[in-house]
Design a protein around this nucleic acid. Structure first.
Lengths: 140, 140, 140, 140
DNA sequence: GTGGTCTAGACCACG
DNA sequence: GTGGTCTAGACCACA
């Protein structure tokens, strides 16, 4: 199973406390970091995002501007917004794919044990916090 | 190894986009959900949290008030803030402990493969989003 | 005579001992309970309340947040704060209107007899306490 | 039916937002204002109040001190706290008794119509606010 | 313009 | 010591 998809599909979590524009930025950054988005890939046009999720066009625009100022994407007037470069490949696609598979297996086990998403997220969050000084935010 | 600790210790992630008060709320909710905090346990006094992390007392207080309105804790003027009840155990402590171990193993493998926290969080987030309609926010 | 008004107008009683934020919360709850505010109705913007009565924006905001966490209103960033739903009509508008009239008649009689507001409030308070286990707080 | 009782019996409403010490003060003031407490009557000893309701002795003490500084009661060392004088009789006992009866009748009608205490308090509060500049707080 | 969050510092009530 | 409220003023996100 290939986890790569043609075009990123955004999702908003209204209860997370994370501002919508930031959720879009994070999702693009993460997709790039996972290789789901690669250099040259196009982000969905603002109007398309507005169709997908309930959001104000200005907010999408703001997110794309942020990504551009971070050097992740480039807006080409008249044609769209495109991914520029991977921020740095952290591992090989193969290894990453294996880890993805392993995590899915673990995820299924956790769910089979009766844990809901909040509980799983709690466990993952505490596990990562427990061995790190740096703090990373995740929106599953 | 017992992951339960006497009193919760908060940590803030300034880069996550999640408002500080919300990070505190989430961390308490998650600790309760994992059984790290149990009914009757006391949250650290506001002034103590202020000593631990750089934060304004009002912000801590706001988080505690939110938790109170959610029915998770109860503030008793003059004595402290205490955990009220578990929102419902999702799984057994044993099974949860096993899952915790398994996840730690996976985590180490991911790091050994060169993935940094952002990449790991990206993978976990996408994995959980890929099979769910509901959206859960995680702060590791 | 229609007691319903376009938009709620707040009033603060500095001598009551009831915290200002709580007075706002109570007044909205009561207006909703009486049908003076109905689903979809907008609460006055925070800045508008600040113009009307001498109060800090944060205090108004706190009240609105409380109401939101109680499920009475919903704050929509950028557009305003709106009433969500009636907590359940306790009686018919007609019957309520009659009772309102009857009470006004009684009120006038009490005042004609020389009772000031404090005395009237005392009488009402004791009358209600005398037959009830539950305690209700009133700010006339 | 005589509404006068031998000794005042305090009640606290934890959900009203009114500080406990203030509720005690208000209840004494109102009882005096209604003639339920008359000059020479004794307030229950602090220990007795503590037995009746869940409250800290210091808080009762504080309330009695407030009443004393308001000139309503007088603490006599070794013997107790006693009512000094009526702040000013607003009406005759007879007329007040009639009004009390009338209000009880109205109260029963309101309850018969299905209104709960919160709704009744809302109606009374709005009725009084609607014709007055002064604001009076009531704890039924 | 709207709501929302944070800091700073003061003051109150309770135990 | 504890929690709780208020003011003042700044800054952010969204429409």
């Amino acid at each position: 199973m290939d986890i790569r998809d043609a075009m990123i599909h955004f999702r908003l979590d209204g209860r997370s406390g994370v501002p919508p524009y930031r959720q879009l930025v994070d999702q693009v950054r993460q997709a790039v970091s996972l290789g789901l988005l690669q250099p040259g890939d196009q982000l969905p046009p603002v109007r398309e995002v507005v169709r997908q999720i309930t959001i104000n066009p200005n907010t999408v625009h703001r997110a794309y501007r942020d990504l551009e100022s971070q050097g992740i994407v480039e807006g080409r007037t008249g044609s769209g917004t495109f991914v520029l470069a991977l921020p740095a490949p952290t591992t090989t696609p193969q290894r990453q794919s294996e880890l993805h598979q392993d995590f899915m297996t673990w995820l299924k086990a956790a769910r089979a044990a009766g844990m809901d998403d909040e509980a799983i997220v709690a466990l993952v969050g505490f596990a990562m916090r427990s061995e790190n000084v740096s703090n990373q935010s995740v929106t599953p």
